[in-house]
Simulated assay, not measured.
Amino acid sequence: MRRAWSQTSPSRVVHADNLAVLPGLPDESFTLIYLDPPFNTGRIQKRQSTTSVRRTGVAGQAVGTITGFKGQRYEHIKGDLLGYDDEFDDYWGFLEPRLLEAWRLLADDGTLYLHLDYREAHYAKVLLDALFGRDCFLNEIIWAYDYGGKSKSRWPTKHDTILVYVKNPAGYYFDSATVDREPYMAPGLVTPEKVLKGKLPTDVWWHTIVSPTGKEKTGYPTQKPAGVLRRIVQASSREGDWVLDFFAGSGTTGQVAASLGRRFVLIDENQEAITVMQARLAALPDVEFVEGAWGPDT
């Protein structure tokens, strides 16, 4: 017997393939969805045959249509783009059905943060414009850092991109006043009062990576710093809201959400990630660890 999930359920960490879990969650359940999917850095996926044509159903429409959420010709745009770079095809085939679920699961005032690197961000931006609607694009956040090796044959790559899309551009939740402020880069140009208060962040976030020797380090290879997630959770959710991360990794999203009074669902199929999250989150109150997908009681 599988246990149902509802808005009154405890926060959960789920060990499963996310695509097996997501369809069991009710529509519009989450105010914030943060996704940090595996980057397509190696370009090792086997691309699908160019003789086959994939069609993906979108909200309320039969599979085979070519109209996106906002009446846009999503399949046509996708086909043109994937024809331009066939190597992206298989990666997007992995990510696309999960983003369709993310759109369904976002509350009307909800926000999606999709964290990618420079290899995929430009493709994803074009496809998400068509999938969500270009009017639902809110921000391109650049997370800049300065750590690791430095190339001498090109400008060193020291940033990730976080694409931000909202479900309803006329009614999304965003509260910049709750966000941790940062130091002024030129404090001599502002008043002492402003220096003391700090400035609101822009869409470029200078924040170090998780230090290999710092207290925050869990040992998980793709762990993201709590400071970056804290800013996202503060701005795009309220106390008591639900936060979803279905590429949960080290569990930073859940830890930050809990520290700010939010509830969360974290999903990952990697046993290493689950082990890290169990050690990191087990002491939190009202958190349940689940093996496998769940849904309505049968």
Rank of each mutant, 00 (worst) to 15 (best):
V210Y: 12
D117T: 12
F39L: 11
V287K: 07
G68H: 14
V13I: 13
R12Q: 13
D36S: 11
G133T: 00
R230W: 03
L99H: 12
K167A: 13
P187L: 00
F30N: 03
R55P: 02
R181G: 07
S151N: 14
V290K: 05
D297N: 09
K150T: 11
C136V: 12
S49Q: 02
N270D: 09
S6T: 09
R104Q: 05
H159S: 04
Q45L: 12
G295T: 11
K78C: 13
T50G: 13
T41R: 14
L189I: 07
R73E: 08
R54V: 12
A235Q: 03
K125T: 10
H15K: 08
R280V: 05
Y123L: 14
D89P: 06
A20H: 01
F289I: 04
V53C: 09
I141R: 03
A279G: 12
F94T: 04
E140S: 04
Y118M: 01
S237L: 03
R2A: 13
K167W: 03
V190W: 00
R3G: 10
Q234C: 01
L266A: 07
V21W: 09
V53A: 11
Q61A: 14
A235Y: 00
A177G: 05
G214M: 03
G24Q: 06
Y145D: 07
P296R: 12
L163I: 03
S153H: 13
V195F: 00
R54C: 11
R134N: 14
L244A: 02
N18I: 10
G93R: 00
H122M: 11
G149M: 07
I162N: 00
P10L: 02
G249F: 05
L189G: 01
T111W: 02
P183D: 08
E140Q: 13
Q7L: 14
D17I: 11
H159T: 02
Y123V: 12
Q223W: 00
L131N: 08
A177C: 01
A16I: 05
L163Y: 05
E193I: 07
T111V: 15
V243C: 05
G57D: 08
F247Q: 01
P10M: 02
V287G: 08
T161M: 08
K152D: 13
P225M: 04
G68K: 08
L105R: 04
T56L: 08
Q48L: 14
E193F: 01
V256P: 01
A279Y: 01
R134E: 15
I33S: 08
D286L: 04
I232T: 07
L35N: 11
T275S: 12
A258C: 03
Y84M: 15
Q61W: 06
G57C: 09
D117M: 07
G254P: 15
V276Y: 10
K150E: 07
A59E: 13
W205T: 08
L163W: 01
G68E: 14
G60S: 07
Y220N: 04
